[in-house]
Design a binder for these strands. Structure first.
Lengths: 159, 159
DNA sequence: AGCATTTTGGACTGATTTGGTACTATTTTG
DNA sequence: CAAAATAGTACCAAATCAGTCCAAAATGCT
């Protein structure tokens, strides 16, 4: 669990196709074929990504979709947020005003908020450009925050 | 989105109660009163936590629940996993054998797996002991891994 | 032995979310 | 004007989630 929805998953696969093709425009049918996903689903996701500003669209007989920004300017967090709304691990993590009955004295809430920020930060650091080229693995540095070295890069703990 | 279920949220609140009371045993009714949650829900969560090995239980008239391990030996990842199963951001992130039709040539899969590990690592680093004492905020250091300072502690980006 | 209390396990239900499809409009090109 | 493509929305089936309830087993106490 702690799942991302399938639609967000599809979105990342689809956007990866765009990124690996140098930002050319594709129509929904081509994307569906390349991503091997049913056309209605692809169409739905593309529409939503466009409305959220990650893609640009052109209608008409030669229309299609294209990336609105450079691949390295689109993060995984952007994509998830576009399809699922704000990233909030718990219900009270994104609310300013807590109304869970435990509001002020709930010691867990502040911690949740921080965990949420941590995850959000991790997802916001991975760009589409990095997702497009496989097995590029030096962009996340979450593990061992206070124990071992902090040499800045290339310390991602994979597997 | 990217939500944790309410049950897991409750579980953390409830376990925090145990931790802040020095590991004494409480029965379901007392936990419900302290956590201000309905008794059936509390009971359900306690049962599951026991079955997953995070709590020990004693039946009978003086029975109740107690932490199976020390608070600093129980992580948030443990708790989430107990209530929701393995932490997997996407469906293919925890499978060894992918059957999504894109298996081998899917470049996104490996990256998802790494993202998953990153989140898992973050949640596995926060213990119940740290959740119990509020606003202790130097245990996560996810943000700014390669940009600004990395002084080891107290660089968690809160808010 | 018997009783009150507590956990255990499962089933069950209503609500919400998700995945996916369909249909109708609107825009653009030729 | 016709064809092709996107835009928007509505819709439905399936899955998941939240919460409740009940009967059974275990335990301690008198």
């Amino acid at each position: 669990m702690l799942r991302v929805t399938k639609l967000a998953d599809y979105a990342i696969v689809m956007l990866t196709c765009f990124a690996s093709h140098g930002g050319a425009t594709h129509n929904a049918r081509d994307v569906a074929r390349e991503a091997r996903l049913p056309l209605p689903v692809v169409s739905k996701v593309l529409k939503r990504l466009t409305r959220e500003g990650l893609l640009t669209s052109h209608r008409g007989i030669r229309g299609g979709y294209g990336l609105a920004r450079q691949p390295h300017e689109i993060t995984v967090a952007d994509i998830i947020r576009a399809l699922e709304g704000p990233i909030a691990v718990t219900e009270c993590a994104d609310k300013v005003k807590g109304d869970c009955g435990l509001e002020t004295k709930c010691p867990v809430r502040a911690n949740w908020h921080m965990i949420n920020q941590a995850i959000h930060g991790a997802l916001g650091k991975i760009t589409l450009a990095e997702m497009a080229r496989p097995l590029q693995q030096q962009y996340v540095n979450i593990s061992e925050p206070l124990s071992t070295g902090q040499s800045g890069t290339t310390s991602a703990q994979v597997l």
